[in-house]
Amino acid sequence: MTADNQLDVWEVFMQSKPGANYIHAGSIHASDKQMALQNARDTYSRRGEGTSIWVVPSSAIVASNPEDNGMFFDPANDKIYRHPTFYVMPEGAKAI
């Protein structure tokens, strides 16, 4: 008996309308790129949810580690000068 398989896992990203961000919709199984695209279409755009699809093999996704959250993300928290509200504008100035 051969080992059974359910094909590889792919991640599906959908764009809801032209110009919008691609958002993770979920996963599907497929053995090749064409099948992955078609399975994504048949699974995630049954209600007209999308105008464009990306599929990516799950194995190609690199995710950050929660243990690294401190060094990865906390240092950005005090860089308030990156936000427009940090700056004091003179009274009466318009369109800035």
């Binding site: 359910q6 094909l7 599907i28 199984h29 497929a30 078609q38 399975n39 048949d42 699974t43 049954r46």
Partner: peptide
């Protein structure tokens, strides 16, 4: 033969 194809055939 597998779930994804079930959906495809139904479509």
């Amino acid at each position: 033969p597998f779930l994804e194809e079930d959906l495809a055939l139904t479509n």
